[in-house]
Write a protein that binds this DNA or RNA. Structure first.
Length: 724
DNA sequence: GTTCTAGAAC
DNA sequence: GTTCTAGAAC
């Protein structure tokens, strides 16, 4: 923090020093140009014209057109090409502009100049005689994006899907210029006609002419609101529809949720342009509108209350990585569009609140949207059935939810909520990554249902508010790790083998998770026995040596579990000899049993069983890892490569080599961990982890042939059995 | 393992 | 300007 501040200060010093110099030079020029006698001869004055607008708004075209028809000497200072045709820095622009002014040229500052801060230094250029103008190309975002996307030879190399991201990003920072910043004249252009007109004005603006000061062309438009909306949207509308009008904006909100995978193939780049593939780090509550379906609560009132309660909650949580998602199955949902409109009007939620069309029980599997907690609008008996969300959630979660619910509460009063941790065996947990269901009971206005309020909206609104408060409170308590009691399973009794399932829970709850890592550079290549282990690398050893103290250490995870050997002194595959074959077989059998159990629960899972060539944690452990690699803990190249390159030794191969050779010869090669990132299925290469993750979330290519042999890949189709 | 951060990449 | 990686410290 300190050092970054220092460097920022230093940067400013450099800039202001530099500015002082060029300003002085410009003033000298001005003095030379200013006639010392009071003769009436009019001198030509230089002007600095700052273009302002996102990529695709037509800044360069504007300059080119004016320069083409103008009698005045101009220089176009374009940040995109200032560095020998490549993009350069603001300082280069300032320097180049100062030089041009010195030569008596007027200058166009052709860069986005999107906010006051970006413009400030350019307004210091030249002397007091130098006029400062702004041309604001306030063109609809939609137009800018489509232009940016279409261009193939743009100087700034801003092409394709990235353009949408950049345009939106920039618009979120837009601050229209004001005369008070130091401008003599500001021209606003909102469409092509305005632009043409301005080109005409500046094109015929001769060296000796002057233009009236002030603001021109600004239409009635509440830019404050626009900015608010842009901030609300923050991220990109992947469809490129982010516009400045509220109609477009509403659509954007729906699309705005970062989605890992919308479809297949052609839409793959959506994730990368939305720039939020790490959205799994945001703790999310998905909730249906309470009471507005079967309980027939008035939509107008309900939407007011939702917006009110969300606003209240969002202001409380500050910058926490938490978000709320109002979900409805129907794209035509009235409540969704009403809430959307009101949220936009009130500018609620910033990037913390979204509306979303989808099945609340399938947000991850269908929409690629990870929600940690979902709310269930239930009935007073907390029982399945009744149709709607309640039936769907109980059905999707399986009997596990019923049982877990029963342990918590038998009934629920209107306005109240109950938090139920979902057992890891629930399909909603394994398939969707949902860790908790919060049952909430809203007020009922339907005479066919119990506790009907008979139109008493005084009471009804109070209860509905209370219901949302209870719901959000429950969510917050989970998010903060308070009251999150996780179900604990007993480890299987299996001879000298202890199992640990590390969690891939996004939250740091109080349960202590043990994660497997790949390696600790210092120990690279060293054998197992003499290795010095860091304290965290000891964790598995401690569990294996003292299982009594850790008898209930089974940490939940959807996709990755470890089978530990209890033998002391056996830290890695390098230590393993022929006599350990029975142990390895047992470990394999245990791993396989778990894999099959998990596959039974979720037929789409595929597993590989194997060892790391050089483990990062001591105590021999077998990885049983599902091949979806959907985990927020998979963060870097080493993680990925440790499971998808020959660094990962399939258990079946290890056992075979032990039988044939008596030991396992390690290639002992760290190069595997440094290899480029390749999809484990189709082997395509990807530049970084987020892009890779985005790809693997939808890649359905068959696995490489080698994996399909000898039972290396365990799936619902393959019933590999290497033990017994 | 996590967190922090500089600087590279975009 | 933002995103991403990788190295260092813990």
């Amino acid at each position: 923090m300190y050092s970054s501040q220092t460097s920022e200060v230093r940067k400013r010093e450099v800039v202001s020093h530099f500015l002082a110099e060029i300003t002085q030079e410009a003033m000298e020029i001005d003095r030379q140009n200013t006639p010392s006698t009071g003769e009436g001869k009019q001198e030509s004055k230089t002007i600095v014209v700052l273009l302002m607008g996102p990529p695709g708004s037509g800044k360069s075209t504007f300059c080119d057109e004016v320069i083409r028809i103008s009698a005045r000497p101009w220089a176009r200072i374009c940040q995109d090409i200032i560095n020998n045709g490549k993009s350069g820095t603001k300082i280069q622009c300032l320097s180049s502009a100062a030089t041009a002014l010195k030569e008596g040229k007027s200058v166009f500052i052709d860069r986005c100049n999107i906010n006051k801060e970006q413009r400030a230094d350019f307004l210091k250029l030249g002397g007091p005689q130098t006029e400062k103008h702004a041309i604001v190309l306030d063109i609809p975002a939609k137009v800018c994006i489509s232009r940016s996307v279409k261009r193939t030879e743009h100087e700034g190399k801003l092409q394709g899907g990235k353009a949408a991201a950049v345009v939106n990003q920039m618009l979120s920072k837009k601050e229209l210029p004001k005369l008070s910043e130091g401008f003599n004249r500001i021209t606003f252009c909102q469409d092509e006609r305005d632009v043409k007109e301005a080109i005409g004005v500046y094109g015929s603006f001769g060296p000796l002419d002057s233009l009236p000061s002030g603001c021109f062309g600004q239409k009635m438009l509440d830019t404050k609101t626009q900015q608010g909306i842009m901030r609300f949207l923050k991220k990109v509308d992947p469809s490129g529809n982010a516009g400045s009008g509220p109609t477009v904006v509403e659509k954007s909100i729906t699309n705005e949720i970062p989605v890992k995978r919308l479809g297949k193939g052609d839409k793959l780049d959506i994730a990368s342009t939305s720039g939020d593939v790490d959205s799994c780090n945001i703790y999310t509550l998905a909730f249906p509108s309470i009471s507005t379906a079967d309980f027939q609560f008035n939509l107008e009132r309900a939407s007011d209350i939702i917006v009110e309660k969300v606003e209240e909650f969002v202001s409380r949580i500050g910058k926490s990585k938490i978000r709320l998602l109002l979900v409805d199955l129907s794209p035509e949902s009235k409540i969704l569009s009403m809430v959307k409109t009101k949220a936009v009007q009130k500018n609620v939620g910033s990037n913390k609140f979204f509306t979303f069309v989808g099945d609340i029980t399938r947000l991850r599997s269908q929409k690629g949207l990870q929600c940690n907690v979902i709310a269930n609008t239930t009935n007073w008996r907390l029982k399945p059935g009744g149709g709607g969300v309640n039936a769907a959630i109980f059905k999707a979660a399986g009997p596990e939810l019923e049982i877990a619910t029963k342990e918590r509460a038998e009934t629920l009063s209107p306005g109240k909520a109950v938090v139920v941790p979902l057992p890891s065996s629930s399909p909603l947990y394994t398939r969707e990554g949902v860790t908790h269901v919060i049952h909430v009971l809203g007020p009922n206005m339907n005479p066919q249902r119990p506790d009907c309020l008979k139109g008493d909206y005084g009471k009804g609104c109070k209860i509905l508010r209370e219901a949302y408060s209870s719901l959000f409170e429950g969510f917050l308590s989970i998010a903060q790790g308070v009251g999150s009691e996780h179900n604990i399973e007993r480890p299987l009794e299996s001879g000298g083998v202890q199992e640990v399932i590390p969690t891939n829970d996004d939250l740091k709850t109080k349960r202590g998770a043990v994660y497997e890592s790949d390696k600790n550079k210092k120990y690279k290549g060293s054998g197992g026995a003499t290795k010095a282990w860091g304290s965290w690398a000891q964790a598995l050893y401690n569990i294996a040596m003292h299982p009594d103290k850790h008898s209930n250490v089974v940490l939940e995870a959807q996709v990755h579990l470890l089978v530990l050997a209890r033998a002391d002194g056996l830290d890695s595959i390098a230590d393993v000899r022929r006599e350990h074959i029975p142990l390895l077989k047992t470990m394999h059998a245990v791993g396989l049993k778990w894999a099959e159990k998990l596959i039974n629960e979720n037929g789409s899972l595929l597993f590989r069983l194997g060892y790391h060539s050089v483990p990062s944690m001591r105590q021999l452990h077998l990885h049983v890892i599902s091949q979806d690699f959907e985990s927020s803990h998979l963060k870097n190249k080493k993680h990925w490569n440790s499971f998808t390159t020959p660094f990962f030794l399939d258990s079946v191969d290890v056992m075979k080599e032990l039988e044939d050779e008596g030991k396992v010869t390690l290639k002992n090669d760290s190069k595997f961990l440094e290899m480029e990132l390749r999809c484990h299925r189709c082997r395509s290469a990807h530049p970084n982890i987020p892009r890779l993750k985005s790809h693997i979330s939808s890649c359905q290519a068959p696995f490489p042939a080698a994996l399909l042999q000898n039972g290396r890949l365990v799936s619902s189709e393959v019933t590999a059995n290497f033990c017994n």
